[in-house]
Write a protein that binds this DNA or RNA. Sequence first.
DNA 1: AAGATAGTTTATTTTAAACTAAATTACATG
DNA 2: CATGTAATTTAGTTTAAAATAAACTATCTT
Lengths: 124, 124
Amino acid sequence: MALEPAILHALASPRRQEILRLVWRDEQTAGAIHRAMPDVTFGAVSLQLRRLLEAGLVEARAGKENDRRNRYYRANREALAEVAGMLERMWDDALWKLKLAAEMEESRRGPRPHNKKNKKGKKR
Amino acid sequence: MALEPAILHALASPRRQEILRLVWRDEQTAGAIHRAMPDVTFGAVSLQLRRLLEAGLVEARAGKENDRRNRYYRANREALAEVAGMLERMWDDALWKLKLAAEMEESRRGPRPHNKKNKKGKKR
DNA sequence: AAGATAGTTTATTTTAAACTAAATTACATG
DNA sequence: CATGTAATTTAGTTTAAAATAAACTATCTT
């Protein structure tokens, strides 16, 4: 369960949000995306695209025929729909509640040390 | 607009998700929350609670009467509902589409340098 | 009032993410 | 086939987030 941290993490970066917006309606080449954000290098854009790909938030294809060196990226809208749905379901999801109950069971017992003990006596 | 990066950022951390789950149904003291995650110090939990508070994802109150030293945290479900709604609205939000169109206008012109120039000739 | 308990804050260290420059791969074209 | 273009990858640096230990504030208990 865990609310898909990978997707949420990918969404949390303003840079990746910007990219996502650019490929929301139509697919765009990596180059066109880079031109829309001139403050970073092409390499940085490429790395962020990879993260979005890994999170399943965008998809990519290579160009056809005499255009095989371009790569076209587009948003995977379904993936975002899933996140939205998941957040909505949280409200009355029985599994969620059960998971919570188990965790609280665990936490209702005795105190634990306030701090971990110091491994080496560093002066301060 | 920008998809509320502060809230999404707060949501993106597994640790904060865990805390959010613990305070989802009933309010819990900071101590109870800490006891449920023995792998980190109390201080770390307190800092994460502060971040959740700042993002508006949880709310807190002090205990009453002979319990004023406890602080009770609870999830602010409405805040999450807003995120879910925002994600859903993205699909056919006219403003969103217009914003995109303007950005692409900008990006459809001429090439830019592939790399930024090197400021100092470091050997490699 | 002394001591214990609950929580926050500060200063520091550790860990991870983002960015850059350069190298590299893969096509495309004169 | 040499040159240029599109994109990715790698290695290193910079920046930011998370965790720790200790100090601190406030409250409760005896």
